[in-house]
Design a binder for these strands. Structure first.
Lengths: 212, 212
DNA sequence: GAGCGGCATCTTGCATACAGAACATATAAC
DNA sequence: GTTATATGTTCTGTATGCAAGATGCCGCTC
């Protein structure tokens, strides 16, 4: 698919994103361009292009003459981000052709079964959950909406460390997925969208207390 | 407020955006970095940072080893963008504190009156319309949603040239604004959001035929 | 006349260089 | 002891340099 060599700033943006999400670039900390460039084995030029990109997505903030900073963790921000992603995904669901969704239904069900199995075995569900939502939205033709979703979701990952859902949350989420699937099979996308929003709003409900 | 000097890429991004919107950088055309940098009187480094930014916002596309291109005009894209902006603004309206909206009501009404006066004098309404929507959303506290809106709206401006609404559309739009304001005063944000979506969806309805 | 190959040129992508602003440390004044 | 100031260092923001891939032109072949 991608037969041409991707520009370096793409890799760099991913690596810097990973460092922000796992805390190697700590919240509130400033980004030292020369040091980071050295660690990544690249020069400052493509690094800065990547940093500009991440700034536009909200993963960094730029302060003139002071470079780039990792924004502070803010539970209030997280409580707003979960519903935002929920509404964006709901929109994408409502704007997907119902017959395309029906074509995905069997695979969506399979993945729900996999999640139940993983839950019983005590495995981590986050990756499976991401995959399910990605499949659900895979038929949405609104490229710009999909771009907004892709750019917003990483912001949430910063708060996964605060996330104390446990089994309770997992069971509830799987149940919500089943309801979304049922609504799709009945052709009621409005109902499906409602449960999709719920799925994300409930996610926010399981956020921990103020982290600082 | 902004007592520090803004980085050069901010100005450049604005100027390049202007050139895309008014056609000095034509659709389908490639961006020649050395020429554009010379015309703007800057070097390629901050120019490229600006181009990366605009690419992330969808105003440009990047092709590896071929630089940046202005994406083609696509009426289907426009027909999807108008409702998208509508839904985003509706979300912002629903997530604004009702009392804050009430505080804006008088000014919103004044601006509607200005628009009516401008309409009778045959003046251009686009700028007034932009200002009204900006005021309407000015109290929304969801920074990330506001960022998405700010990044998406410029994409629409590319299609203003295709826009043949005329007086009919203008009158209808002003009426929709009045209904939004009435809903705000009644405290019915759901109803206001519905009309706000309508306002944008109707905008798309006035798009011209296929441009190519 | 149409298609193809080779060569010169142009352009991008990345690396490096440099000037000025921000920062830190230490010294001086009170 | 605390605050202010001076100065050297660090870091960012922008400009410039360079190598490799893309583009275009010319002539050749059929």
């Amino acid at each position: 698919m991608d037969n041409v060599t991707a520009p370096l700033r793409r890799d760099i943006a991913e690596q810097v994103t990973a460092r922000i999400l796992d805390g190697r670039l700590p919240a509130e900390g400033r980004v030292n361009e020369v040091r980071l460039a050295a660690e990544l084995g690249v020069s400052r030029t493509p690094l800065r292009e990547a940093l500009v990109e991440l700034t536009d997505r909200g993963l960094l903030v730029a302060e003139p003459r002071r470079g780039f900073r990792v924004p502070p963790l803010d539970v209030d921000e997280a409580r707003r981000l979960y519903p935002l992603v929920g509404e964006l995904e709901a929109l994408a669901l409502r704007w997907t052709a119902p017959q395309d969704l029906l074509g995905l239904a069997d695979r969506l069900e399979e993945q729900i079964d996999e999640m139940r199995a993983a839950l019983e075995q005590g495995k981590e569900l986050a990756a499976l959950d991401d995959r399910w939502h990605a499949l659900l939205l895979s038929a949405c033709a609104n490229a710009h909406l999909m771009r907004l979703i892709a750019q917003t979701k990483p912001l949430l990952k910063r708060y996964d460390v605060l996330y104390f859902g446990g089994l309770d949350r997992a069971r509830r989420s799987i149940d919500e997925h089943r309801r979304i699937l049922a609504a799709i099979r009945e052709g009621d996308l409005t109902e499906g969208a409602r449960w999709l929003v719920q799925n994300w709003v409930n996610g926010a409900a399981y956020l921990g207390q103020n982290p600082r």
